[in-house]
Amino acid sequence: MSEKTPKWSGKSKGFPLGYRIFIFVIRNLGVRAAYLVLGFVVPWYVLTSWKSNKALGVYFARLRAIVPGIKGLNYFRSYMAMGRNIIDKVAVQAGLEARYTWEKVNGQGVADLIGAHKGGLLLSAHVGNWEFASHFLKGHPGKVNIVLLTAEDERIKAVMENELSPASFNMIPLSKDMSHVFKMNNALMDGEVLCMHGDRNLPGSRVYTADFLGAPAEFPAGPFALAAAHKVPVCIPFVIRTGPMKYSFFGSDQIPPGTSRDEIFKRYVQEFEAIVKKYPLQWFNYYDFWQHADPTSDR
């Protein structure tokens, strides 16, 4: 484990006008029409997103080196996957949930964790469509709080909140006034569950290093240290688009309370790597994830 400065800018991809256009198309012409529009938008991204393309190239090279015979990795398919993901998110939040197929592959560990009312952590990643976990966990007793990075593009969040129905889960933004410290601690003490991603570093934050897809990569230390310090159970869930208009929920077994942060981190990296290898185009990562763990890279 080490401490270095990370690279992700903290901004999500996309822009408010684009989101508004897609919300309009989905509402008035349907989901498939929005996919069609996407097919015209994505080439523009392929041609103009130089930095993202470069990062994707590094990611694809890692995958090709570690998964022999892997096929279908290209910029167009990657951006299409991300676009479909966003369209689906908007469509479901706009009330078109019934048009999708929902499959729970393994969710008992997560359901038990939430239902126990003894606090817990769900550690996910920017893989697939985590927001759809609310669909799979609907009806389960217990409260889930999503911890939001403040660096996510506020304009996009504002558009999503204004245009769509309220989120199913409670949101706790990380804020400069430190109000999140009280909210997060209280939530865990009240037996609630916190959910956060473990695959994005913000500048200046502590990091842990582990081999990921065959090379050292940095992960934020916070989520793993938090789970260990609070001695709460942890689950690692992902919601993946596994077919046309179909989403599947994958949840790990529970990592018991009292597990060391090193062990929690190790389990997370294993689960994360496994899902990325299986669904490589659904990790929406557009910066060089390995850059800062590479001693030969520029800083």
């Binding site: 990380l174 410290v181 009280f182 601690n185 934050s205 502590r206 916070g222």
Partner: peptide
């Protein structure tokens, strides 16, 4: 090298060592 999330962690370790709960 504290980030926003680390303060949540910090509250716990301070409580464990000094028996007091600090507010954010």
């Amino acid at each position: 090298a504290l980030d926003s999330l680390d303060y949540v962690d910090l509250v716990v370790v301070i409580e464990q060592n000094f028996g007091m709960k600090m507010k954010g």
